[in-house]
Design a protein around this nucleic acid. Structure first.
Length: 1005
RNA sequence: GCGGGGGUUGCCGAGCCAGGAAAAGGCGCGGGGCUUAAGACCCCGUCCCGAAGGGGUCCGCGGGUUCAAAUCCCGCCCCCCGCACCA
C-alpha cells in the first residue's frame, strides 16, 4: 500500500505544479456568473491539523464543483494572527516550557532546533504561515494565492481602522464597563487556559439591596444584602450576619457594613472603598434595619404615627415609594422608623404587625459565608430553607436570645409568602420542603442545599409573584430578576456585586482570582435592537446549512449582548481614536472577505498601505464619494481605483461561508452583524454552512495539549486524495468525524482499485452499446443526479458515497456480468470525482486528453440515458439469483433448478397500484378488499417497490421473465453452479402457486 | 438552568421531515475462490430458529395513533455542544 501512496504523492505533486504553472485557480472578473466562497482563515499558533482539513476540504470540493459547473469561482485564503495566544506561545517557547516543547515537537511536527528559535510573535507568524501555506498547497486546494494576507499587514490594519470608524459613526461602538475574571497578582484578565482551578466558574451578578440602620456613633449605616433573587425583598423578616469580624467601610461615600473579603473585592468593581474601622458583628446583632421598599409600600398604614406624616399623602403609589425611599436613604426617616418600631415593641404605639415588616432585626447565623458577596444576607424564611431552619435554631436557643437581648416576638413571626408555584400545593415552600426532608438544624448542610435547590428550581420555573409584591404581582419569577434589579438601582437602593459561581478560582500563578469591572471599555453594541432586527430579518433570507442551524442562529442573535472589543494585550490593530486599546481579535475578523479583493492589488504592488485611505475605502467598498477624490486621497490613479471598485462589485457579496460549528456563537454572528452594519443590502452574505469537528481515534484533538495530527503529516502518510476523500466521506454536516488510521488505509485500498481499474479500461476502444451497457449508463446517470444534488446541499458524505462507492459497486456488477465496455462512462466518472480526488482524476484524464479536468464541465444528468427496462432486467436477475441460492441452501448437492413463472393476486395489486396516485392511496384502496388485509405486510412490501420505482414496474408488466433467464442462462448457471431448466411441468403444483410476477417459483433437485 | 443536536443491528454510520422488505454503505469477523504460499484481489455469510425462498425478535425506555411505526403523537431516562469577550 505504501507503494501506491508514494506513486500517488508523485502524481499529486506533478499536478499541483501544473495547475500552478497554468494559473488555473487565479480568478479575475469575466462574463461567467461568479461564486465567492470563503472559509475562516486559520489562527496560526500551531500547524494546520486534520480538523482544519475538514472545513477546508469541504470548501475546496465545493469550489471545484462550482467551477466545473460553469461558475467563476473565487476561493482565497489568509492567515489570522491577531490576539494573545501567539504572544503566549512565544513566551512559553522563550522560557523553554517543557510541556510546550513536547507538544510542538511531538504533535505539531516542528523540529526542535527550529522551535527553539520561535521566541517572538513575529517569528512564530513567519514560521507557521509558511508551513500553513505549504500544507494547503500539498493537499491541492484550488486557492487563488495572489490574495494571501496576514492580519498584521499594515494595509489590513488600515482597513480595520476604517471599519471601526464606520461603526463608530453609526453609534455601534460604545463605551461601558464589564466584569472580567482577573488576577490581582498579574494585574491582568485571566483566560481559560491560564487557570489552575475553577474553569467551570462563571461570573454571576448578585443584586445588592441596601437596608438602612442608624447607629449612635456612626449615624446611618448601610447593610448591603446580597441576593440572586431580588424579589425576596418583599418577604424579608430579618437579616443575617456571621458572628465574626466585619468592617465598616466608606463605599462611594456611604458607610457600609460588610465582610472584609467583600470590601477587598469591591475595590475591583468600580467602587471606592475606604475602611473606616474593623468591627465585631456581634455588636450589631439585635439592632434593626429598615427595608426601604416595604416602608414605601406600607407607609399609608403608619402615616399617622410619623412626625410629619402628611407629606406622604396625596401622592401616587409610585411617587410615595420614591419619596419614602429617598428619605430613608438620607438616614433621618430610617432613624425615625427604627425608633417607632422600638416603641411599638414596648407597646408605646400600635401597628406592630406593620412595623415589623418594615423594620427587621439583625440576627446571627453560622451558615453565612463572609467570602460570598457582601457577607450580609436577607432572611426570607418562606422561600429559603436555610433562613427558616436558622430561625428555628434560634428559637430554641435561649442563651443566644438572652445574650443579644432579642425579643421572642421578633423571631416568632409568620414567614411572608410571596410566590405561588403553579401545580404545587405548598403553603410555605421552604417550610414544607424542609419538613419533607426532615431537616433539624443548620448543621445539616447537604440536606439544606438539596432543599434550597428544590425550592429555587420550582419557584424559578413555575413561580408567580403574589399580591405581597405590590405592583409586581402576577409576574413570573423567571422574568423578575432583571426588572427588579434595574428598578432597585434606579431607586438608589440597589447595586450589583459580581461573584464567581464556584470557588475557588485560582490563576496559574497561584493567586485567587477576583471579578474586576473594567471601566471605559469599548463595546460593540450588539444589543442595539435595530441592528439585531436587521440581522434577524436578513437571516430569514439566507441559506443556512444544515437548515436547523437557522433556529440556532436566531437564538444566538437574540442572546447576543454588547461585546467588549478592546484589549490591552496582544497583536492587532489599535482603536484609531483611543490608541491605548487594541481591537480584540474576533472583532477584527468580521468583514475581511472584502479585503481579499484588495489583497490582490496589494500583493502585485499596485496598492500600498499608504494608499489605503478612508476615502479610498469608502469609494471602493461602499461606492461613497467618487473615484477622483478617492484617487486624490489615496495617491493612486483613477483607473486603478476604478479597477478595484469593479473587482469588488463583481465578487461581492460572499456567496458561501463554510465554517466549523465552533464559530456559530461568535465569529459567524459578528460576520453577519458587521456586514449588515457596514455594507448595503446587495452585499450582505448569502449563505453559511457549518461542519463538525474531527477527532483522532475517538479522542478529541487539542492544539495545546495533544493529541493532534497535522494536515501535512496526514497527506504525507496517506496521500492528498486519500486524505481528502476520507475526510469528505467520514461524516456529514455538523456531526463529528473520527480519523481512524485503519479506515484511512482501507480507503487507500479502494482508491488504488479504482485507479488501476480506470487505467486498465480507459484507453480501450468503445464498442457498440448493448443492453448491459445501457444498464450501466442508466445507473450512472442516477449517480450524477444524486451527486450533484448532494453537493448543492454541501452533503459531501452523500456525494462521495454516490459518486465513488455506489458507482464502484455498479461497475463491479457490470464486470461480473461480463461487461467490457466500461470506457463509455469513464470520462464522466472522472469528472464526477474530480472535486473530491482531483489529482488522481487529472492524472487519468490526461491519458486521453490535454485539457485540465479541473476546468472541464461537470457531467449533466441526462434523462434520455435512463433506461428503466435495463435496470429492471438486472434487478430481476439479482433477485432471481438470491432466491435460487436461498432455496439451494436446503438441498445437499443441487444439480438442477426448475423454474415456473406464474401470475396471481399480485397482478391485481399491481394494477390497482398503477391507477393510484400515491402509495398511501393504493394501500387504502387495496385494504378495502377484506381478503387482502391478511396479507398487508406482503402487499406493503411489494407496493413500496412499486412506488419506489414506478416506471420499472410499468416495465415489469411487459417484462418477459422467461426471455431474461433464457438470455442469461450461461451467466446464471456459471454463477449458481447448477443447471437451469425452464420446464414448469417439473415444478410441483404447490410451489407453482407461490410464484409471483417478478418472482418465479423455484424447484431444486 | 436555557438553547441546539443526538441515542439504530459487534463497531462506525445511513434511514426519521414526506409511516410500508432484518433496516444502505464501510470496518471487523467467518467461509469459499485465486495463488507454490502469504499479501492483494473476487465472491458469499455475519440478530435467533429453520434441510424449500419461511417464521420469530429488533432501532434508549414506557404508552398511544394506524391495516402498518426506527419513522407520527405523549411521557420518561441518558449523551454531546454553546452560554462569551476566548481563538
Amino acid at each position: 500500500m505504501q507503494d501506491f501512496v508514494q506513486e500517488l504523492r508523485v502524481i499529486e505533486k506533478k499536478w499541483q505544479e501544473e495547475w500552478n504553472k497554468a494559473k488555473i485557480f487565479e480568478s479575475d472578473p469575466d462574463d461567467r456568473p461568479k461564486f465567492f466562497i470563503t472559509i475562516p482563515y486559520p489562527y496560526l499558533n500551531g500547524n494546520l491539523h486534520v480538523g482544519h482539513c475538514r472545513t477546508f476540504t469541504i470548501g475546496d470540493a465545493v469550489a471545484r464543483f462550482k467551477r466545473m459547473c460553469g461558475f467563476n469561482v473565487l476561493f482565497p485564503m489568509g492567515f489570522h494572527v491577531t490576539g494573545t495566544p501567539i504572544i503566549g506561545l512565544a513566551e512559553l517557547i522563550a522560557k523553554r516550557d517543557p510541556r510546550t516543547i513536547e507538544v510542538y515537537t511531538k504533535y505539531h511536527d516542528v523540529p526542535e532546533d527550529v522551535l527553539l528559535t520561535l521566541t517572538t510573535p513575529e517569528k512564530i507568524v513567519e514560521y507557521f504561515s509558511k508551513e500553513a501555506e505549504s500544507a494547503l498547497k500539498d493537499i491541492g486546494y484550488s486557492i487563488d494565492w495572489r490574495r494571501k494576507f496576514t492580519t498584521t499587514d499594515p494595509p489590513y490594519q488600515r482597513f480595520i481602522e476604517w471599519q471601526f470608524w464606520k461603526l463608530k459613526e453609526k453609534g455601534l461602538v460604545v463605551r461601558g464597563s464589564h466584569p472580567v475574571r482577573y488576577c490581582p497578582n498579574d494585574e491582568n484578565p485571566v483566560e481559560d487556559h491560564d487557570l489552575l482551578m475553577g474553569e467551570e466558574a462563571t461570573i454571576v451578578d448578585f443584586t445588592i439591596i441596601k437596608l438602612y440602620s442608624w447607629h449612635e456613633k456612626f449615624g446611618k449605616i448601610v447593610f448591603p444584602c446580597a441576593t440572586l433573587r431580588p424579589e425576596t425583598i418583599f418577604g424579608v423578616t430579618n437579616i443575617w450576619v456571621k458572628p465574626t469580624k466585619y468592617v465598616l467601610a466608606k463605599v462611594n461615600g456611604e458607610l457600609w457594613f460588610l465582610s472584609k473579603e467583600a470590601s477587598e473585592k469591591l475595590r475591583y468593581q468600580e467602587k471606592e472603598v475606604e475602611i473606616v474601622e474593623e468591627v465585631d458583628a456581634n455588636d450589631f446583632v439585635g439592632d434593626f434595619v429598615v427595608n426601604p421598599i416595604l416602608a414605601g409600600m406600607l407607609i399609608d398604614e403608619i402615616v399617622d404615627l410619623l412626625k410629619d406624616g402628611k407629606r406622604f399623602e396625596g401622592l401616587s403609589d409610585d411617587g410615595k415609594l420614591r419619596k419614602v425611599v429617598e428619605e430613608i436613604t438620607k438616614g433621618e426617616l430610617a432613624k425615625e422608623l427604627i425608633e417607632l418600631f422600638k416603641k411599638s415593641l414596648n407597646g408605646e404605639v400600635g401597628k406592630f404587625e406593620v412595623l415589623r415588616r418594615i423594620v427587621v432585626p439583625i440576627l446571627p447565623a453560622e451558615f453565612v459565608d463572609t467570602d460570598n458577596a457582601t457577607g450580609v444576607v436577607m432572611s426570607v424564611p418562606a422561600h429559603a430553607p436555610y433562613d427558616y431552619i436558622a430561625l428555628e435554631d434560634l428559637k430554641r436557643d435561649e442563651k443566644i436570645l438572652r445574650q443579644y437581648g432579642i425579643d421572642r416576638r421578633l423571631i416568632e413571626i409568620e414567614p411572608i409568602v410571596l410566590i405561588r408555584i403553579e401545580g404545587e400545593s405548598y403553603e410555605v415552600p421552604a417550610v414544607d420542603v424542609a419538613k419533607e426532608l426532615g431537616i433539624k438544624s443548620q448543621s445539616e448542610k447537604d440536606l439544606l442545599d438539596k432543599a434550597t435547590k428544590i425550592v429555587y428550581k420550582k419557584e424559578f420555573h413555575k413561580g408567580v409573584l403574589l399580591e405581597t409584591t405590590g405592583k409586581y404581582a402576577g409576574m413570573q419569577v423567571s422574568k423578575i430578576k432583571d426588572i427588579l434589579q434595574k428598578d432597585l438601582i434606579d431607586l438608589g437602593v440597589g447595586d450589583i456585586f459580581y461573584e464567581f459561581s464556584e470557588k475557588p478560582v485560582v490563576c496559574r500563578c497561584g493567586t485567587k482570582c477576583v471579578v474586576k469591572v473594567v471601566r471605559d471599555q469599548w463595546f460593540l453594541n450588539y444589543s442595539n435592537p435595530e441592528w439585531k432586527a436587521k440581522v434577524l430579518s436578513w437571516l430569514e433570507e439566507m441559506t443556512i446549512i444544515p437548515d436547523y442551524y437557522k433556529e440556532e442562529f436566531r437564538n444566538k442573535i437574540e442572546w447576543l449582548k454588547d461585546k467588549a472589543c478592546a484589549r490591552r494585550k496582544g497583536l492587532g490593530t489599535r482603536i484609531p481614536w483611543d490608541k491605548e486599546w487594541l481591537i480584540e481579535s474576533l472583532s477584527d475578523s468580521t468583514i475581511y472577505m472584502a479585503y481579499y479583493i484588495l489583497a490582490k492589488f496589494i500583493n502585485e504592488g499596485s496598492l500600498k498601505a499608504e494608499n489605503v485611505t478612508p476615502e479610498f475605502l469608502d469609494y471602493v467598498l461602499l461606492g461613497l464619494g467618487d473615484a477622483e477624490k478617492a484617487a486624490q486621497s489615496s495617491g493612486l490613479n483613477v483607473e486603478t481605483v476604478e479597477q478595484i471598485r469593479k473587482d469588488f462589485l463583481y465578487w461581492y457579496p460572499v456567496d458561501l461561508r463554510s465554517s466549523g460549528k465552533d464559530l456559530v456563537a461568535n465569529h459567524l454572528l459578528f460576520f453577519l452583524f458587521h456586514h449588515i452594519a457596514i455594507f448595503p443590502k446587495e452585499h450582505w452574505p448569502r449563505a453559511i454552512a457549518v461542519n463538525g469537528y474531527v477527532s483522532l481515534e475517538g479522542k478529541k484533538m487539542s492544539k495545546s495539549k495533544g493529541p493532534l495530527l497535522t494536515m501535512k503529516r496526514a497527506v504525507a502518510e496517506n496521500g492528498a486524495d486519500v486524505t481528502r476523500l476520507y475526510i469528505l466521506h467520514a461524516s456529514e454536516y455538523d456531526s463529528d468525524a473520527d480519523w481512524r488510521k485503519k479506515d484511512v488505509e482501507a480507503l487507500a485500498g479502494h482508491l488504488r482499485r479504482f485507479f488501476n481499474l480506470v487505467k486498465e479500461h480507459y484507453t480501450k476502444e468503445p464498442k457498440e452499446i448493448d443492453q448491459l451497457d445501457r444498464w450501466l449508463m442508466s445507473r450512472f446517470q442516477k449517480a450524477i443526479k444524486e451527486t450533484k444534488d448532494a453537493m448543492e446541499k454541501l452533503q459531501t458524505r452523500r456525494a462521495v458515497n454516490s459518486a465513488f462507492f455506489e458507482v464502484m459497486n455498479d461497475v463491479r456488477w457490470y464486470l461480473r456480468r461480463g461487461g467490457d465496455n466500461l470506457v463509455i462512462i469513464l470520462d464522466d466518472w472522472l469528472k464526477l470525482l474530480a472535486p473530491f480526488i482531483p489529482h488522481i482524476c487529472e492524472e487519468l484524464w490526461h491519458m486521453k486528453h490535454d485539457s485540465f479536468i479541473s476546468l472541464e464541465r461537470y457531467p449533466e444528468f441526462d434523462e434520455c440515458k435512463v433506461d428503466e427496462k435495463a435496470e429492471a432486467v438486472e434487478d430481476y436477475l439479482k433477485r432471481f439469483m438470491e432466491d435460487v441460492k436461498e432455496v439451494m441452501k436446503f438441498v445437499e448437492k443441487p444439480k438442477e433448478v426448475y423454474v415456473a413463472f406464474a401470475e396471481d393476486w399480485k397482478i391485481e395489486v399491481l394494477k390497482i397500484a398503477e391507477r393510484a396516485e400515491s402509495m398511501k392511496q393504493a394501500m387504502s384502496e387495496i385494504m378495502k378488499n377484506e381478503q387482502f388485509r391478511t396479507m398487508a405486510k406482503d402487499i406493503s412490501a411489494f407496493l413500496k417497490r412499486v412506488f419506489k420505482d414506478r416506471e420499472m414496474f410499468t416495465v415489469m408488466d411487459e417484462l418477459n421473465e422467461r426471455e431474461i433467464i433464457e438470455n442469461n442462462l450461461e451467466f446464471l448457471e456459471r454463477e449458481l453452479g447448477v443447471k437451469i431448466i425452464l420446464d414448469e411441468s417439473k415444478v410441483p403444483e404447490e410451489k407453482r402457486k407461490l410464484a409471483m410476477p417478478g418472482k418465479p417459483a423455484i424447484y431444486v433437485v
